[in-house]
Write a protein that binds this DNA or RNA. Structure first.
Lengths: 103, 103
DNA sequence: TGACAACATGTCAGATTTGACATATAATGG
DNA sequence: CCATTATATGTCAAATCTGACATGTTGTCA
């Protein structure tokens, strides 16, 4: 939970509420972002484990390479919905997703 | 995984792809819907456990009572994103969410 | 070096989701 | 029975997310 991390997130387009500094982030807001990043990492790991390219995954989803890229980097323009759909398309089970989220 | 359940979902506005009958639902589509329903149930249980009304939860979220209601019934117009945000606003931890999703 | 493949970043019109509101339907107590 | 409170259902303009596309960057192999 370093300032560095926050700065990094802000640079990626995150701008929680109107708040500008670290102290303004509520527990929930942080938890939400952390969860999204967890799912991002899971998508990337699962994809790479399967030896697939972003283009190949995007085709399974009727999406596009750029969206998969943004998804894997935790971009704020990508919903958790899409992350979940991607994980399921990659063959993840609910149990696996649950375990990953639970840390 | 009964036909009855599918019919029930269809009546709630679910219309997966263009497919009209049970056999047309892919594994992923079913898993996605099941996950959404799991989260719906978790929101309702947690809210009731805390003795809160839908109006009270909606205020925590800057949302509205009608949206909370739809959320708890797994309405297709409500995103998993909003469900997750609700759970976090109700004080759920990532661990709890993960455990719930994992069944 | 250059060609190629995989991934990242930026933009935007169209699609989906949102809060808000009106209104309907329970459920409870008097 | 009538209030009152909680929840459900329907609608819609505004906000957000999406796929598509262009283009930039990085890594690798010859």
């Amino acid at each position: 939970m370093k300032k560095e991390r926050i700065r990094e997130l802000k640079n990626k387009g995150w701008n929680i509420g109107e708040i500008e500094d670290f102290l303004g982030l509520s527990e929930e807001e942080m938890a939400y972002i952390e969860l999204k990043i967890k799912l991002s990492d899971m998508v990337r790991e699962l994809r790479e484990k399967k030896g697939l390219t972003q283009v190949e995954v995007s085709q399974k989803l009727n999406s596009s390479q750029s969206r998969i890229s943004k998804m894997e980097s935790g971009d704020p323009s990508v919903s958790i919905d899409l992350q979940i759909k991607s994980l399921l398309a990659l063959g993840a089970t609910q149990e696996e997703i649950g375990k990953w989220i639970g840390c």
